[in-house]
Nucleic acid binder design. Sequence first.
DNA 1: ATAATAGTGTCTTTCAGACAGTATAGT
DNA 2: ACTATACTGTCTGAAAGACACTATTAT
Lengths: 297, 297
Amino acid sequence: MIILDSSRKVNKQGLTEEEFLRAYDPNKFERPSVTVDMLVFTVAEEKKSADRKKKLKLLMVKRGDHPCIGQWALPGGFINMDENLDEAAMRELKEETNVDNIYMEQLYTWGDVGRDPRTRIISTSYISLVNSRLLDVKANDDADDARWMTVSCELFQEQRTVTGKTCTHEQLYRLALSNEEVNVSAVVKKSRIIEGRITKVKWDILETNDIAFDHAKIIMYGLENLRNKVENTDIAFILVPDLFTLSELKEVYEAILDRKISDENFRDKISGMVVETDKYAETPGEEKEKLFTYNPK
Amino acid sequence: MIILDSSRKVNKQGLTEEEFLRAYDPNKFERPSVTVDMLVFTVAEEKKSADRKKKLKLLMVKRGDHPCIGQWALPGGFINMDENLDEAAMRELKEETNVDNIYMEQLYTWGDVGRDPRTRIISTSYISLVNSRLLDVKANDDADDARWMTVSCELFQEQRTVTGKTCTHEQLYRLALSNEEVNVSAVVKKSRIIEGRITKVKWDILETNDIAFDHAKIIMYGLENLRNKVENTDIAFILVPDLFTLSELKEVYEAILDRKISDENFRDKISGMVVETDKYAETPGEEKEKLFTYNPK
DNA sequence: ATAATAGTGTCTTTCAGACAGTATAGT
DNA sequence: ACTATACTGTCTGAAAGACACTATTAT
């Protein structure tokens, strides 16, 4: 019996795989650059603010060079040829936050032609959640000016149009990122186009105010994704210590979802994911509150 | 008041944006190639088979050149420098199926270093569902040997290990793709590593039998994604005509999820998504059955 | 005393999933 | 008569969300 080794097979030009690979010229076609962009979220109290409420924050860096010099961008950078996408994302994340073993997940790959003026750049975005108490206040150890910025996002216009068989639903959001010193924003349009059974979703930036490149729509997409995950998975527990009170956990939910949740509904909702302990939190000036741990089930 | 036009700003080297871009050399760094890979699913009856049951099918092409010559791969190809990722995916899809206006969604971007022997190739995968009655039997109009292959996927080993604080859950799946002539398969391992609150999922190909590159794990990932979508969205209606019977719709669900669903539960589950009509399906030799339409709500 | 918050019990509604039963057609 | 399938109604348990009430503590 003859064993057909794949390396013996020849193509139409009569080349074996080895010969083919030796002749292969990767520069025959022009190639794009590939970067990773990181959406690093945390939930923390405002530094100088009257209300002690926790807020959703996003790590942003101020661009020190062209293009978009002086504007605020997601941390990220070009991938190396000898590292996987995940490794590149993890490397960028460590450079910015110094945090090990954190939650990180691929979000979406953005490949529009004109999204960077330098050259064709395709960017894979990653979403990450870090516990704010594990971080230094200043995350920037390199030259980059990296800062936590409070995220706020408001739906301010909504429109439904039915034309024949297609139905479009457009929503205008104002995304604002701010800290004590800076305040940047953008207007992003989310369009849902429903044709028969097929729904297409499109994001467009209508106006941007010091948010670099197309990052405003990446942030909107990531924010929506994060909120879905918080409501449908146990991802929020990443942002809370081993022992936590229910109000502490609820604060995280409220910060991310940006809405009030009633105590009772919250208790029921998460009852399957937490275990009661016999310990109590001793906050001076307040009633002592029961502590819970995470129950992975 | 001085208006700071961003094009007037200079960087540390004293260059304006225009000067910077003129001096920018995209070839300073080596760049990867980028491709799109399409997962095109449909649900259709087996051509020559005793049972008239509908099966989940996936469009595959036989590779005519190195690498992986003779093996079966997902349709796809290199992106052009002047088209978006979505446009590249749509172009590839049209080349293979001739179908317009179909459902298509970005799935995941695969960027492991050694996934192609030619050069570093990063591949964004797209998932698509096409109605089999809108397709020609032979989807191949170009030289490619494109064929529908019935998908079957079986969990044959499962393992849970707890070591200290980390808990691993490993599942071995046998993925098989077949039609009247060909039969290819692979063994893929899905690992869930739970460390504290953070769960990581990893896919590995343990063995591959004429499924090219790392496509076996892309298929597994896409299949899992498709099943989640079928259970949580109204995506299955794409695979059914405007007027359909409940058994017809149920067949689609059963083919994709690969399990029996009881009539009553099915009726309840989809009751909010369908509208009864006064028409009946006239299948010779069978009881006439009520026809429904899709209710987008 | 009053207000704020923690913690409890009970009430809906909704929905997935399972069981029983009727009606209609073909063998 | 028997079987297969279409179709209907009812029951369960689980989960989401809302209301009322008690206990504790600070002011």
